[in-house]
């Protein structure tokens, strides 16, 4: 007889716990309900060859990804979250040599002169930059906004993608551990 009350009460508590968990996870940024999983995880990076934007020396092509662990950051000067994550990229750039990876940029739907002006002031974290003004390569990477960050292993296979601005927590909890693993 008491089961009639215990079972619904238990289910209700379970439901409540689920809601609280989801709310906390969304609030803390751990879970983004509108994030789209990348279709390219575990697949080879697409073939491409992009020139450097005007004022930069090294362009970016698929050949540059072979034999090295790569962080590829999709960014644009018109994108405010890209400005927010920029200091973290400068930090990452300092770790590149010791960490055994290269940090490269895909300048997405941007104008060369705007980018040059921004980086002249803020600094350039990237060893190479590919200019993709018409989103040709962006589409091949499944990019749907800026910023996005990909991690590509030595065999030029995409192992990780994060859509949104990088955060200290993300670097600490996901990106640095993954880089350490790939370095081996």
């Amino acid at each position: 007889m008491r089961l009639r009350f215990v079972v619904p009460a238990f289910l209700f508590v379970l439901l409540g716990a689920g809601f609280v968990y989801a709310l906390v996870a969304i609030q803390s940024g751990k879970k983004d309900p509108s994030a789209v999983p990348s279709a390219l995880i575990g697949k080879p990076a697409p073939e491409f060859a992009l020139p450097a934007p005007q004022g930069f020396s090294a362009g970016l092509s698929a050949a540059d990804l072979k034999g090295k662990v790569t962080i590829l950051n999709v960014f644009a000067s018109w994108c405010p979250p890209c400005h927010v994550e920029h200091p973290l990229l400068l930090d990452l750039a300092k770790e590149a040599t010791n960490g055994g990876f290269q940090l490269v940029g895909l300048n997405w739907k941007d104008k060369d002169e705007k980018l040059a002006a921004w980086f002249k002031e803020a600094g350039n974290p990237f060893a190479r930059i590919g200019a993709d003004p018409d989103n040709r390569v962006g589409i091949d990477f499944g990019v749907y906004g800026a910023p996005e960050t990909f991690i590509i292993d030595r065999d030029a296979k995409i192992v990780y993608r994060y859509a949104g601005p990088l955060t200290q927590e993300l670097l600490r909890d996901e990106i640095r551990p993954l880089l350490a693993k790939l370095k081996k």
Binding site: V36, S38, A39, L40, I139, G142
Partner: peptide, 8 residues
Amino acid sequence: VVARYGDF
């Protein structure tokens, strides 16, 4: 398109 962006 699906190959690049997934079933979504």
